[in-house]
Write a protein that binds this DNA or RNA. Structure first.
Length: 326
DNA sequence: AATCACTGCAACCGCGAATGA
DNA sequence: TTCATTCGCGGTTGCAGTGAT
């Protein structure tokens, strides 16, 4: 016996929503809310629609403060950074972009951003550029210091890296399949360490700052709100992307526990801009990442990263290579 | 002008997770 | 604890619009 359908498919309308249906749904929800039951909602609202369809229409189109239209470069960077770290967790990524829906971001990634990234260089030049870009990126990190007051450099208008080169290098330098679930065992290691942005410890799948931390879940999903001991600092953890308030300065960081087996952080500013400086822990000590990534190592990183297989295919000639793979 | 290919996006589908009886 | 129901997510599809031939 198969799964029961969520609604009587014979009696529900499918396809694009009419303005009248939109109005009905919006009016009902404005008046009564969703009532926590999407399945029952369409009947109450006088709509011949599946509850799931109503939910989707509301979340992706009708609810207030939905942002449509062009994505900004900043949004591009956030999407790239998060995708590089947590993969296609669109709902988590959307949570970092107010007004954007997961569906919107997913569509944008699949139809534009991915192509944007891959279209920078012709396939024949791509590998060399990626290697050079990554090398440049890592060299930048060697001269940086990580502190709450450190300036964000290595990724700005003065940098030789363009936004897209940066994002591309992110994608090729990280194991993008390091999703929250994969990172969890690392985070659950309950190890104390000293590292950026200041002293903190990883405990019970949460990052804690200082000696005390009270924790609560902000929405019951993947984001946790952690109050620092003095009540001033908060930390929001969604997958392996986090934020911390320190001395009035908001710092975000990306956590990637899975490149050559070493834990890494990348500090970013409050807008989600990452500065390209990975700090990693080797042999129990935090240090700058190595600077001498060879092309072979990069290739290995890419080849072991399942969701980077749209980058290029080693076994094909340039002429055979499509611009991207799905 | 007709046809074809491509693009962008809204919507659908199926699955696993969460919830409650 | 089990089972049914609902929710939420990510992958996929369908189609209208647009540009190229």
């Amino acid at each position: 016996m198969g799964r029961a359908p969520c609604c009587d498919k014979a009696n529900v309308k499918k396809g694009p929503w009419s303005p009248e249906e939109d109005a009905k749904l919006k009016e009902y929800i404005d008046k009564y809310g969703t009532g926590g039951n999407w399945i029952a909602l369409p009947q109450k609202a006088g709509l011949k629609r599946c509850g799931k369809s109503c939910r989707l229409r509301w979340l992706n189109y009708l609810r207030p403060n939905i942002k449509h239209g062009e994505f900004t470069e900043n949004e591009d960077r956030i999407i790239c950074s998060l995708f590089a770290n947590i993969g296609s967790r669109w709902s988590i990524i959307a949570a970092q972009l107010p007004g954007r829906t997961d569906n919107d971001i997913k569509n944008y990634w699949n139809t534009k951003l991915k192509k944007k990234l891959m279209g920078i260089f012709p396939p024949s030049q791509r590998k060399a550029h990626q290697a050079a870009t990554l090398s440049s990126l890592l060299q930048t990190s060697s001269s940086s210091s990580i502190s709450p007051t450190s300036s964000y450099k290595g990724y700005n208008s003065a940098s030789s890296l363009t936004d897209l080169e940066f994002a591309s290098s992110l994608l090729s330098s990280n194991n993008c399949c390091t999703n929250a679930a994969a990172a969890a065992p690392v985070l659950q290691a309950q190890e104390n360490f000293v590292g950026p942005p200041q002293n903190y410890q990883i405990k019970d799948n949460l990052l804690m700052f200082g000696s005390e931390a009270s924790c609560s879940s902000s929405d019951g999903s993947s984001n946790n709100l952690i109050n620092h001991g003095n009540g001033e600092r908060e930390y929001e953890y969604g997958g392996n992307y986090g934020e911390v308030q320190m001395g009035g300065l908001q710092q975000s960081f990306l956590y990637n526990g899975n490149i050559d087996g070493n834990q890494r952080f990348m500090i970013s500013n409050g807008d989600g801009d990452v500065n390209g400086n990975w700090i990693q822990k080797q042999n129990g000590m935090w240090s700058d990442p190595p600077l001498d990534y060879g092309l072979e190592e990069i290739k290995q990183l890419i080849s072991t990263s399942n969701c980077n297989n749209f980058l290029f295919d080693e076994n094909k000639t340039d002429q055979e290579k499509p611009m991207m793979y799905y």
